[in-house]
């Protein structure tokens, strides 16, 4: 498949030629495919923010290219501007960028800059507000009257209203309560499905990324050491941990089980997978069967127990494996 956006040998050096010179990205080849849900992980200062700011032409590469639909986005100023609308970028803590008198006006800022007509703007604003779960009576309020979570929704709607083909979100759930996290991730998934858009989710929370994405890209020290489906990337558990990233708690338990000699595939990261694998492992080993057969039968219908329970169960399996 042809990538919708890709970087070729992308290098970015901050403050080049001064004592503060710093190479944030070093010959990075990155790509995202149409309709893909991609996760970027990396700790603070790894270069992930620099990378995503190149994708929508906010930063100019020191060397290398950024291609959007096979066109170099810096080849023509018109194309550069167009790319900013086609590749929507939601910054970290986007609620601090709100400025208009009403929520409606703020969401329409992007579409207005695109030069759309009134009717189209209205349609897009309402559609975007609907996506992020804002009610109609919110639209006429001042954004500063809203709660923190609602402000964040308004800010995300402001980018979604441009109906970008690629939507990049930098830590969209930072500082939200668990309920807020769930609902924002749900909104993003809905947008992904409704528009068949490419989503790039930047995060340092492995749990969050692992649940949603098709493919993971790890960024560390300005290079991409690993990329691939989550299960593949999580096989490098040790290396990830050395980068200060670590794997989801669930995966870590399975890595430990494997290290302790249990014949088990350690690259799990969702509860459903974990359940299936534990059950399979139990069936294979009659020595364990007697001990935990009952326990697993207790709640077979429990479709999505909270993560802690899952780890607990796995941990008890770990204990009983001895």
């Amino acid at each position: 498949m042809q990538p919708i956006i890709e970087t070729k040998q992308l290098t970015h050096i901050y403050s080049a030629g001064t004592p503060f010179q710093h190479t944030a990205l070093d010959s990075v080849d990155f790509c995202a495919y149409p309709g893909e849900y991609l996760g970027i992980i990396g700790h603070t200062g790894s270069g992930k923010s620099t990378l995503i700011q190149h994708l929508n032409a906010l930063l100019k590469p020191t060397s290398g290219q950024v291609l959007f639909q096979d066109m170099d986005i810096w080849s023509d100023p018109k194309l550069t501007r167009k790319t900013r609308f086609q590749v929507g970028l939601v910054f970290q803590y986007p609620e601090y960028q709100l400025f208009e008198e009403t929520v409606y006006k703020d969401i329409s800022f992007g579409p207005k800059n695109m030069g759309l007509d009134e009717k189209e703007i209205d349609r897009r604003v309402r559609a975007a507000a609907y996506f992020v779960g804002l009610r109609d009576d919110h639209l006429e309020k001042s954004p500063f009257e809203l709660s923190g979570g609602q402000k964040r929704r308004v800010a995300i709607a402001g980018v979604i209203a441009m109906e970008p083909k690629v939507l990049i979100l930098d830590e969209p759930t930072a500082g939200l309560d668990p309920e807020g996290v769930e609902s924002i991730l749900g909104n993003i998934r809905e947008y992904h499905q409704a528009h068949n858009a490419t989503i790039i989710l930047v995060s340092h929370s492995m749990e969050e990324v692992a649940r949603s994405v098709d493919r993971l890209v790890a960024v560390n020290d300005g290079v991409i050491p690993f990329q691939g489906p989550p299960c593949e990337v999580f096989q490098y558990g040790d290396a990830l941990e050395k980068m200060g990233l670590g794997v989801p708690q669930l995966t870590r338990v399975f890595h430990r089980l494997k290290a302790m000699g249990v014949d088990i595939d350690p690259s799990v990261y969702t509860l459903d997978q974990a359940k299936a694998i534990i059950l399979r492992a139990l069936n294979r080993s009659p020595r364990l069967d007697g001990l935990c057969g009952e326990r697993t039968k207790e709640s077979p219908e429990c479709s999505s127990p909270p993560a802690e329970q899952g780890t607990e169960r796995a941990a008890s399996a770990e204990k009983e494996a001895d």
């Binding site: 986007p94 601090y96 992007g110 800059n113």
Partner: peptide, 14 residues
């Protein structure tokens, strides 16, 4: 902060 807000608004076509 100014740098950040400028980038964010530029991302919306400012």
């Amino acid at each position: 902060e100014t740098d950040k807000i400028m980038s964010a608004q530029r991302a919306r076509g400012a």
